[in-house]
Design a protein around this nucleic acid. Structure first.
Length: 260
DNA sequence: ATGTCTGGTCCCACCAGA
């Protein structure tokens, strides 16, 4: 089963890119972020025509998350527990082929300091709490999406530029490393221990051409699914396509559960 | 410091957010 995450940055503006990538790479499951589309403008027909089921949680102007799958999708929740006031579409938890899949669009948090950064820290706290519940259930689970966190220096082309950035503060790096300490496995870093593997290149200053990238899209595996990881990567070339998102699709492959 | 995109409002050029 090939599972991918892709911050699409406007699903309607990027639809030709999305459809081309789906047709070429044929992922089984795709978690999308930043739909930038109200619920009723989700391009369901074009996506179903390629053989995908879809569940999405849109929002006018900003945010928005979706899960596409060739297998049946069972929705668990479209709300990250812990804040009844939070009405931003940033979380979608589903079950596909007995795997819990949490599609995440973690807040960016800039500028720093301020309400947006506080919201980010609060959101991370809620995610951590939810992730602990999943670990306690011993469920095969995946936390996947745009985390807006640069975990380590190797994950940015220029660490010193990001010292005061909400993607790279001590607090958010620590929160990420605590998830790993809890037992979650950073799948892409595990597969590429010493390599620069960026998932995002800014639109500014020809960042992609200069490979001025960041690794901020992540796939975290719960202990009970880690031995199924066989392969992974970043479809870097997609970032160079016409009218592309500023992120590139990031994916892993899991073998079939043979003891189930 | 700058830079580039999208979506939304409102009239065509701006703004917020990333």
């Amino acid at each position: 089963m090939k599972v991918a995450t892709y911050n699409i940055n406007g699903i309607n503006a990027r639809l030709p890119v999305l459809l081309r990538w789906l047709a070429e790479e044929s992922p089984d499951v795709v978690c999308l972020q930043e739909l930038k589309s109200p619920q009723e403008r989700f391009p369901l027909k074009e996506i179903s025509d390629l053989g995908y089921h879809a569940i999405w949680h849109g929002q006018k102007s900003w945010n928005g998350v979706a899960v596409l799958s060739k297998y049946k999708i069972e929705e668990v929740t479209r709300v990250l527990p812990g804040d009844p006031e939070d009405n931003q579409s940033r979380y979608l938890e589903v079950i596909i082929q007995n795997v819990v899949i949490c599609c995440i669009y973690l807040p960016n948090g800039n500028p720093l300091p301020g309400a947006k950064y506080e919201y980010k820290l609060n959101w991370i706290e809620r995610l951590t709490k939810r992730s602990k519940t999943l670990l306690q259930m011993n469920a095969p689970a995946i936390l996947i999406g745009d985390f807006n966190i640069i975990p380590e220096e190797i994950d940015t082309y220029k660490p010193e530029k990001y010292i005061d950035d909400a993607l790279f503060t001590k607090e958010v790096k620590e929160a990420f490393s605590l998830l790993l300490k809890d037992g979650w496995q950073d799948a892409i870093r595990t597969l590429f221990p010493d390599k620069e593997v960026y998932t995002f290149w800014d639109y500014f200053r020809q960042a992609y051409g200069r490979n001025a990238g960041l690794r901020i899209d992540h796939i975290l595996l719960s202990p009970s699914i880690q031995d199924r990881l066989t392969q992974g990567g970043i479809d870097r070339d997609v970032r160079g396509w016409e009218k592309s998102s500023d992120h590139a699709p990031t994916w892993i492959r899991l073998n079939n559960n043979t003891n189930g």
